[in-house]
Design a protein around this nucleic acid. Structure first.
Length: 488
RNA sequence: GGUACCGUGGCCGAGCGGCUAGGCACUGGUCUGCAAAACCAGCUACAGCGGUUCGAAUCCGCUCGGUACCUCCA
């Protein structure tokens, strides 16, 4: 009995049945990285969360167009001494690089990290800088409809005016009246009618390198503009899913909703999805807090907070063991636990090729249904994994001769592991992948020698072989039938 | 100050009113020349105080503690 997919919609704060606007097509837009530094665990979580959504929707047979942008125009810095300077421009000046050189460098590094994490590339990966014209057109529409005003070459969104016709704050649960009371004085905002009005177009000061001509000034688009413009361009005026990190809920996504209503008179997004944050020692990680560990540091182990290097797949598995809407606290202990758990699943999967068929069977279908029910329940990967662990125990029991599988059982179990672990969860068992024939032959020989040593009661030699292989992360497993081995 | 959210056993982490989550760690056992792996068994918790209910980790209230957003960030 397979349920239908339900997605938690931030807009309604409820799980809703997933019904695409025009099946079998699904349009999904996810806020991608601002490329002025290396990707960290937080980027990985967002990417992996929506990679799972992307993969699972495809598994269900949908034709998904997945758009994930690259923010390469940068956002306004709020540092008082760097007033109005674009993040990317700032980094460029510090490094004596062209802005687009910085962008290219970190885009390349981001792509490499994503590949390591086995995150599928999106269908379209548009850049903000490549869509300035679309953004200008979008600003014009909002101006024309009277929801924005121009001041000193910049264009601002008029939140109070908008709120007369629509509801600003519906996504994040904020009220304009509260925002009004909560006015703060921020430097450089004299041009705005209200502090919470946001820029649609910003005039560039003379030092600002990244700039484009527009009807209002030489400048650059405001920071919520790109997603509205590019979402509309590639997914249409209405599309199914918009995703991103919870930190983007306000003001970014709230403002996107406002922009769309202001320009088009209706909303664009049916399901809003937000992944939760990663914490380190219970505290969020963030660029400004300087407590983030980059993915490259995880993969190399080169960071004082790390006990060891972690395989990209361990990071991926670690994320899947928590629900995407929960915060996930990082620790070496948790990561090591994930590493062991993941290997346990891989080993159980491999055993399926070795176990003997029999006539008596086990109810495997049950695990299949439980796993997919979990995924259908707002992508509950930790529950699905729990069921796979249960199935792994059964496979091991079969291998130990305590239970038995029919041929059909084995087929179903293999299919389930392949679909979930590799296809939907995007995990891959990479250990010992290269030179596997050579390694297999060498290991066969070595194990043969060890077997003879054991027959001669030469345990010193047998143990020596085992210990030396241990150093190469090769583990010997002895049993009555002979010896086996695996990469730890 | 405003707005959201969270507090589960040694650690991570599910849970959405009744039924063992799961992983890791630990303890005992089976197996093994020994070890590892695997299997079996054990440890079995829901911040505190009230309330609703036949029954609450799960709903309501209060208290305490923590986090995020409101300013760039996944």
């Amino acid at each position: 009995m397979q349920s239908t997919l339900q997605i938690y919609n931030t807009l309604t704060r409820k799980k809703e049945n997933f019904e695409p606007l025009s099946p079998p097509h699904v349009g999904m837009y996810v806020c991608g990285p601002t490329v002025y530094g290396d990707a960290h665990l937080g980027h990985a979580r967002a990417a992996i969360t929506f990679d799972i959504v992307f993969r699972y929707l495809m598994h269900l047979g949908y034709k998904v167009r997945y758009v994930r942008n690259i923010t390469d125009v940068g956002h306004l810095e709020n540092d008082t001494d760097e007033l109005g300077e674009d993040k990317i421009a700032k980094k460029a000046r510090l490094d004596q690089l062209e802005p687009m050189e910085v962008v290219q460098l970190f885009v390349n590094r981001y792509h490499k990290n994503m590949e390591q994490l086995n995150v599928l590339p999106p269908s379209i990966e548009p850049t903000a800088s490549g869509h300035v014209i679309e953004q200008i057109e979008y600003v014009k529409e909002i101006l024309k409809n009277g929801y924005a005003y121009e001041k000193e070459g910049s264009v601002y969104f008029d939140v109070v005016r908008y709120n007369e016709d629509y509801n600003y704050g519906k996504l994040s649960g904020r009220k304009v009246e509260d925002l009004l009371q909560n006015t703060r004085e921020l430097a450089g905002q004299e041009d705005k009618k209200n502090s919470f009005d946001f820029a649609l177009w910003k005039k560039a000061d003379p030092k600002h390198i990244m700039r484009w001509p527009s009807p209002w000034s030489d400048g650059y688009p405001g920071w919520h503009m790109e997603c509205s413009a590019m979402g509309a361009k590639y997914l249409g005026e209405q599309f199914d899913i918009h995703g991103g990190g919870l930190d983007l809920l306000f003001p970014h996504h709230e403002s996107e909703i406002a922009q769309v209503n202001a320009a088009k008179g209706h909303e664009a997004v049916k399901y809003w999805m937000h992944n939760n944050m990663i914490t380190i020692d219970g505290q969020k990680m963030g660029k400004s807090l300087n407590n983030f560990i980059t993915l490259n540091e995880f993969f190399s182990g080169d960071h004082e907070a790390l006990d060891q290097a972690y395989d990209p797949m361990v990071i991926r598995f670690f994320m899947l063991q928590a629900h995407y809407r929960s915060t996930l606290d990082f620790s070496n202990e948790a990561l090591k636990a994930a590493e062991k758990g993941m290997n346990k699943l891989f080993e159980a999967y491999k055993l399926l090729d070795q176990i003997q068929e029999s006539s008596s069977s086990v109810d495997i279908k049950k695990y299949h249904d439980l796993c997919f029910d979990a995924l259908n329940d707002d992508f509950n990967t930790p529950i699905a994994l729990a069921h796979l662990f249960d199935l792994s125990r059964i496979i091991n029991q079969v291998n130990d001769g305590k239970k038995s599988f029919t041929k059909e059982n084995i087929t179903i179990a293999k299919k389930l592991f392949e679909t979930l672990l590799f296809s939907v969860f995007g995990l891959r068992d990479e250990k010992g992948k290269d030179d596997s024939h050579l390694i297999d032959y060498l290991m066969e020989t070595i194990l043969d020698i060890r077997k003879q040593a054991k027959e001669n009661k030469d345990y010193a030699t047998a143990d020596k072989i085992r210990e030396e292989l241990e150093k190469l992360n090769i583990q010997i497993k002895d049993s009555k039938e002979g010896s086996n081995w695996l990469f730890k």
